Simulated assay, not measured.
Amino acid sequence: MNKIDMAAQMAGKAGFIAALDQSGGSTPKALKGYGLDETAWSNDEDMFALMHEMRARIIKSPAFTGEKVIGAILFERTMDGEIDGTPSAQYLWEQCGVVPFLKVDKGLEEARDGVKLMKPIGGLDALCERAVAKGIFGTKMRSVIDVANRDGIAAIVAQQFEVGEQIRRHGLMPILEPEVTITIADKADAEDILLEEISNHLNKLPENTQVMLKLSLPTRANHYRPLIEHEKVMRVVALSGGYARDEANGKLAQNAGMIASFSRGLTEGLSAQQSDEEFNATLTAAIDSICEASKAG
């Protein structure tokens, strides 16, 4: 698969990134939103199989193409699975024109200094090697900021860049995701500190090096414009962070150059009980609205 074409699409094409990477504890909640409760499975393998079926249904929809969905973030089990007999990442790029990414983090540590760092990612080098072999373009990893604490935010950003460099050495594009919780009282202050810390680390990166950033929609519109314009940032994408799709779209449209990378915002309204016609119509409307919001800024 052509990494040059993938990089060009990620750097400059209009559209958004679909986040199809729910894992672990978030899987039952995602399936419940899809109309499947705990009675639909008897063990974890059945649960993850249902999740793969949901993701495959989304990916196989006529609306899910690189015309508007320029990338998709996959869970490891999805990467290792197949869609109609074709490895998932290969199917995404060759059949849909969508650039494949892989979620690599293994969850969060307990809170300290107002943040939750990533747990150690055991076997990351081996996972990156598998991802490269399967045609994955880049990775994504999430940590969480709950308080505008400079020490905590500095630790979050340092960890993201450190692990990002390890990933980059494998020829993969790291998406760094230091999420700011949208409900905290000092969110704007946390975003000020985050912008400063990220900028400092970007300025220390070697020449001709780039990362991507996945950030919470900011309190002040265009707050992250300096990152969007930074030569060492390929793209800045936004997570919906718990906002309903319409509200997330409205906030995104106020931020020039930022594009969506929504999960719940994308799957809102989809149901296992829908006919294919109903499912595809609902997904088409979601994709259209998120794409327009991504262009609006």
Rank of each mutant, 00 (worst) to 15 (best):
G297S: 05
Y34V: 04
E109P: 00
T65C: 10
L283P: 12
L202R: 07
A40D: 04
A154N: 13
I58Q: 11
E162R: 13
K204L: 10
E231K: 15
K214I: 03
V69Y: 06
S294D: 04
L195H: 03
V115R: 01
I121V: 15
Q95R: 15
G12S: 12
V237D: 05
F137G: 03
E129R: 11
E67P: 01
E162Y: 12
S275I: 12
Y243S: 00
Y243A: 01
L283G: 06
M212W: 01
D192L: 12
L217E: 00
A155W: 02
P28E: 08
Q210A: 13
N249Q: 05
K140I: 04
N203P: 06
E162H: 14
W93D: 04
A154S: 14
G152S: 06
A126K: 15
A148R: 00
V236D: 03
Y224N: 07
G265N: 02
K251S: 00
A14R: 07
K295S: 01
L102R: 08
R150H: 13
G269K: 09
R264T: 08
F101K: 09
E191A: 05
E110Y: 11
N149L: 02
G242W: 00
K251P: 03
A126Y: 04
I17C: 15
R225I: 07
A272K: 09
A158V: 01
A131F: 10
A7E: 08
S143L: 07
A296E: 06
G123T: 13
D37F: 10
D44I: 09
D84L: 10
Q166E: 12
A154I: 03
D21Q: 11
A293I: 00
A281W: 03
N222L: 01
R220C: 10
Y224M: 04
Q254M: 06
A248G: 11
M51Y: 15
D151G: 05
Q95W: 05
A248D: 01
A111W: 02
K119Y: 05
F279L: 08
T282N: 14
D189E: 15
A154L: 08
Q274T: 10
D105Y: 04
L270A: 08
